[in-house]
């Protein structure tokens, strides 16, 4: 009864190794996940509230009540490598966070109720593709994209496009924005 065949001993050892490597894998993954959970605290922290480089839109009111704070994506092209400037800063909103939301304008930005608009507003009075903000030389213009309810600057309907000055109030449907520039 005493002797164990070498093959059996080998098999026993390999069985143990099998279990050990399984748990080594589990541990390795656990460590990776732990590092992942601990490390990206910085990543999920709010982006620094960057000062707008050129111009921005401040949401005044919208029928899409509820939260509207957040950040915006910068884009790959243009002159914002690595992303210092173009991150839109969440401004502290009202109680529901709807007003005060800030959209940084750089390049051309379209507003509408559906993708592929850059800024999507869940407000039924906003057309799917409603308006486009773009810079022509030194001035910013807003262009109506054939919306149903029209685009207004300080209460005047925009026929095709209109120049914007800092402080202008732009309405797209029931949603209105304050245009700010020149910082």
């Amino acid at each position: 009864m005493a002797g164990i065949a070498p093959a059996d001993l080998a098999a026993l050892l390999i069985r143990l190794v099998f279990v050990v490597v399984l748990y080594v894998l589990v541990l390795a993954v656990l460590v990776t996940l732990r590092n992942d959970v601990l490390a990206p605290a910085a990543r999920s922290a709010p982006l620094p509230s960057a000062t707008p480089r050129r111009a921005r839109l401040v949401l005044l009111e919208t029928a899409a009540d509820g939260g509207a704070h957040g950040r915006r994506a910068s884009h790959g092209g243009g002159d914002s490598p690595g992303g210092s400037g173009s991150a839109g800063a969440p401004a502290a909103g009202g109680p529901n966070g709807a007003s005060g939301c800030v959209i940084v304008l750089d390049g051309s930005v379209t507003v509408g109720r559906r993708a592929p608009s850059d800024v999507i507003v869940s407000d039924d009075s906003v057309s799917a593709k409603h308006a486009r903000f773009s810079a022509a030389g030194d001035t910013w213009r807003v262009e109506d994209l054939g919306s149903t309810n029209g685009t207004y600057v300080n209460g005047h309907r925009v026929e095709r496009s209109a120049a914007l000055h800092s402080g202008d109030v732009v309405s797209t449907g029931m949603t209105s924005w304050r245009f700010e520039s020149g910082t």
């Binding site: 949401l59 919208t62 899409a64 009540d65 509820g66 939260g67 509207a68 957040g70 950040r71 915006r72 994506a73 910068s74 884009h75 092209g77 839109g88 939301c101 959209i103 390049g107 051309s108 930005v109 993708a115 592929p116 608009s117 850059d118 800024v119 999507i120 507003v121 869940s122 407000d123």
Partner: peptide, 10 residues
């Protein structure tokens, strides 16, 4: 060039 963001009522 789409920089999209979304105002959700959520």
């Amino acid at each position: 060039m789409a920089r999209s963001l979304r105002l959700t009522p959520a």
